[in-house]
Design a binder for these strands. Sequence first.
DNA 1: TTGAAAGCGTTACCAT
DNA 2: ATGGTAACGCTTTCAA
Lengths: 340, 340
Amino acid sequence: MTMQDVARHAGVALSTVSATLTAARPVSAGTRARVEASMTELGYRPNALARGLASKRSHVLALAFPMGPAGLSRTSAEFVIGATEAAQDRGYQLVLWPFATDDAAGLLDVARQGLADGVLLMEVGTGDARVRALAEAGIPQALIGRTGDDGLPVVDIDFDATVVAAVQHLSGLGHRRIAFVNHAEHRVTEGHGPTVRAGEAYRRIVAGLGLPAQEVFAEESVAGGRVVAAQLLDAPQPPTAVLVMNEEAAFGLVAEFAARGVAIPGDVSVAAVVSTPAVAGQTVPPLTTWHAPGVALGRAGVDLLLSVLGTGEVPAPTLIGCGLVDLGSTGPAPRGGPHP
Amino acid sequence: MTMQDVARHAGVALSTVSATLTAARPVSAGTRARVEASMTELGYRPNALARGLASKRSHVLALAFPMGPAGLSRTSAEFVIGATEAAQDRGYQLVLWPFATDDAAGLLDVARQGLADGVLLMEVGTGDARVRALAEAGIPQALIGRTGDDGLPVVDIDFDATVVAAVQHLSGLGHRRIAFVNHAEHRVTEGHGPTVRAGEAYRRIVAGLGLPAQEVFAEESVAGGRVVAAQLLDAPQPPTAVLVMNEEAAFGLVAEFAARGVAIPGDVSVAAVVSTPAVAGQTVPPLTTWHAPGVALGRAGVDLLLSVLGTGEVPAPTLIGCGLVDLGSTGPAPRGGPHP
DNA sequence: TTGAAAGCGTTACCAT
DNA sequence: ATGGTAACGCTTTCAA
């Protein structure tokens, strides 16, 4: 079932069938009708490989998917879903390239096989070797997460806006001691974008509101969450509200609060930022969440890559904030000052 | 940088370069050496599209990835990881095809474009329309999850062996009243494989051990878990051990036990089956888990599809059991009979 | 063992 | 507006 078969069936030249499909040149209404009739009658589907080879556009996009536990997070999964759907909507297919973020060589190797028209890079770090490798090879790319460098096509979560919104939300409820539970401290020294950016935003906004900053770092585990919960409660000035950007730790935090008889949101308000209700909603009580825009980010990433592919231009970075999902774990600041 | 360039550089015919690459015909050691030298010197990478077009083998596998929340589960994510890695190991690439399980037409449409050599179907249901559609179109496929039909290439979780192992584990600890928390009841009528199979296995094994069966169905939510927890505790003969095959409900179950002062594992032993420590380990206390073999299943699925592709034969179904991850939530049956 | 040439199923260009 | 034909970059005969 090739294009030639369709041409024969419709009594036209092969090139006319191609033109009917691609609109690369005018085709008269009558001819178009006959060709299309033949195509549906024969059940013809153009061959993707041949089309890609001849046109030098495979209509395949690659997603460089980082191996390791980070790649398994709910938000990563949502990202993949979003990217896959967007690709589909745009008439593209998405291939998964499982490479560690430091395996630029491996990535380049498969990239140069020409299956994909461009590459979407997840978990981009400062001075990412993959970015340079692809750039040197002339392979179009789009990045998820900002690097230090500028002038690259990037989409990212708007950590700043999200943290600001969350702090303002709590401040609006009358809280004046709003703590922030960040990722593990070593992430800062590693230059982990989310950790650094969210921390900066937090310190800036509380300062701007004239509130004290209370930023703590938690290991990414339930135990890590318990540790910081204790740390916060035992402080001379315990917070009346806690923002947590650490999904694993959130479970421990809630558990430790419960164990100490600290009620949420009665005694302390708690909210998860850059998480998802599917995870942060599984604690008891479920946590009000600023939902990480995984799906939207995936879609934006694909659109960004396609725009790079189409125009060769590099648009300004796209930042997407988190939406609020109120599950009831925040409330007015307790009147009688610090809780028990 | 084409094969022709390499041939020229090495002073051989184009077909000899091809032969060096594919071993489709003998090449003398000397020639091979010169060709390989030229390839590395020029940094040559064969073009995947051209290779696929000429050989009628794209070395691309498709993963029909179900849309909707099910596709976002941790186990699904692990499956995708496993399949992607396996494909990579075998020299294949994996494309994601996001289609609802009932969108056989959409799936067929893209499948017939010939980009993929074969399709891996996730979340296969009884009488799955996708299976028939692909079969009629002559497109190789492999299935994750058994259908009613026989003679199809299938890999699946060994629910039976897993449930049996879990019940025996608890029975070995002296428990005689071992409850089973299954998925929602409507799943049974829908013919949802895991729900049906695990339920059957549970009833069979407890009967075999001479123990009473206590199977309950929970909505897939924290609230659903609380409901069944209450139901179990309020029964005339409360269980001393509970097996949960419902990740969302597990959180509610543990919470309700805690709220009622029922200690785990002091008063009641609890274990998750067909889950993952990454999820079931986030309750407090973390739950001993029979870890769903997502990664292994993904790998097995790819290998199955490749074997179908290679031989045309349909191997017998492959069933993979869950491994035990003991997180301490099970213990000896309480001596004094039923707990408080 | 090697070279030459005919496909693979399209697109893109050049005539007509 | 349409037909013919040369690429696209490789695999696969078929000769030599």
